[in-house]
Design a protein around this nucleic acid. Sequence first.
DNA 1: CATGTAATTCCATTATCGCGGAAATATGGA
DNA 2: TCCATATTTCCGCGATAATGGAATTACATG
Lengths: 117, 117
Amino acid sequence: MESLPAVASLAALAHEGRLSVFRMLVQAGAGGLAAGEIARRAGVPPNSLSANLNILSRAGLIRPRREGRSIIYTADYDSMRGLLAFLVEDCCGGSPEICAPLATVVSQGCDAEARRC
Amino acid sequence: MESLPAVASLAALAHEGRLSVFRMLVQAGAGGLAAGEIARRAGVPPNSLSANLNILSRAGLIRPRREGRSIIYTADYDSMRGLLAFLVEDCCGGSPEICAPLATVVSQGCDAEARRC
DNA sequence: CATGTAATTCCATTATCGCGGAAATATGGA
DNA sequence: TCCATATTTCCGCGATAATGGAATTACATG
């Protein structure tokens, strides 16, 4: 039993293969990627990938949609935001100085890569 | 073997008891908490807690220091920042719109609780 | 040095996870 | 309907994680 949804999300991401799949989908954006394409890029057998996609799905981090005979997976950005919010939720209580750096982390994560947000 | 440090951090946090200990330490700030005090608050036997503190330490999320006969654990904010930065690293590539909400998440995480940062 | 407290390490048991072969389900096209 | 493609489900094996009792190390005090 998983009482905290955050724990399920963290557990889903605490796996090298799943983490790289999730990052792949985050980069892919709203268009998403078909399971087969993910398997090809990741170089893993389709059944193992399927199990891991299922774990990410049940954690709410990604969403499947059928399109023809493919199943397209997309990152669920709301869920990702929720997880990040949960992680920073308590930081200000003990040490307010962490919040400012966290804000810069978010902007640096975008600016440093010369991306437009 | 754990090639990505982020995976070790995520695995360390993907456990209800460890996650609550980490959040406790994040709230506690630079002063930290003694292992015994953590065990008391969490209501877990000291040996189980010790194992979990060790996992969090090896992931770099917390740091121990001896003080008299107690061992005081503190959250490692740099490591936490690193993990969050890693998680948001790719988000702008596929969907730039996620970055703005992330910034608000960080500020909401502070403002909503009427905290001062 | 003896004692009590704080915390860890050792160890065995049980539970869960990760993996991949083989079979099954779903879809689209000839 | 028959076939090929896409993906999932089923199943078993080996590895890893979680747990807590008991013993051990570290420190402070008298």
